[in-house]
Design a protein around this nucleic acid. Sequence first.
DNA 1: CTGCACCTTCCCACAGTGGTAAGGTCAAGG
DNA 2: CCTTGACCTTACCACTGTGGGAAGGTGCAG
Lengths: 164, 164
Amino acid sequence: MNIGKAAEASGVSAKMIRYYESIGLLAKAARRENGYRDYDERDVHDLRFIKRARNLGFSVEATGDLLALWRDKSRASADVKSFAMRHVSDLEAKISELQAMTRTLRHLASHCHGDERPDCPILDDLATPGAGETDQDAQVNRAKVRKPRDAGTQIRSFRRPVTA
Amino acid sequence: MNIGKAAEASGVSAKMIRYYESIGLLAKAARRENGYRDYDERDVHDLRFIKRARNLGFSVEATGDLLALWRDKSRASADVKSFAMRHVSDLEAKISELQAMTRTLRHLASHCHGDERPDCPILDDLATPGAGETDQDAQVNRAKVRKPRDAGTQIRSFRRPVTA
DNA sequence: CTGCACCTTCCCACAGTGGTAAGGTCAAGG
DNA sequence: CCTTGACCTTACCACTGTGGGAAGGTGCAG
């Protein structure tokens, strides 16, 4: 099976398949005479596993650990469970961090007229020393979570020098 | 004021101050005879503004927009409010994405014995085509949120080739 | 044979942040 | 006066993932 087919079958782009192979997450693919990578069902299976783990927010690194756990038929289910639950804690830390942000922002916004007048408590707050920190919350939450694939839908609007 | 003092006073590292200047988020700093950057209270104020915006999860890009809004004394508060609320939506999209992940993981983990036996529904699920997707949720949430500063607290454990 | 779809490798970009190396500057203390 | 140490300067490199594209080979269909 060509890389294109494997990509289609697994939902992992050809680009990413090569990348995963290059960092050692994936075993080196078999090659055909012509140099093309050749995949079989087991490879596609691994790719789907990876895809799924990534969708659950596991980093590529953690995904490697999961794959290793999966291959190690003698691991204790407790190991897997604790691994997963550690990830859940990371996720939840991230969630409460984001929630603190939305709380603060909604609070500020609720005091903003939202009309033609220029005065706005949101900016005033940002511009005021010692105001709305969100940091007591944020300070605690230093997990590494970063959900994969986010780059497509961007907002793009800044990019000219602010002053010059 | 030296960059070090400005960093201390604003909570933005010297490194980041230079970076923000280099990408045009911050005006080019005044220089003294010796080439050292020189900051005054207004600069520190801007830095604190940036710091605060970043803590609220605004991207550097969005922070530039906020700074521009703040400097534009004639902007309507409605503009600021809608800008902030768009960000809140992004945050909330991210939150529900992460929540979907934790839900799925907690669900899987709840079916895992977590003992010495090797069989584990978590891995089984990852390894099974068509199982626990989280993707209907995730599909919708493609905002660009990515809270700043996360790199310090890493997990580090993977890095040897999975097969070789 | 031509054209098109696929494959290969390699380098670039993105967002932020930290690290570090090689050098200049400056003030304090011997 | 000279050394030491704390600061500053620039310029690179790393990380995490992902996509884009160039330059070239391959393979199949018409």
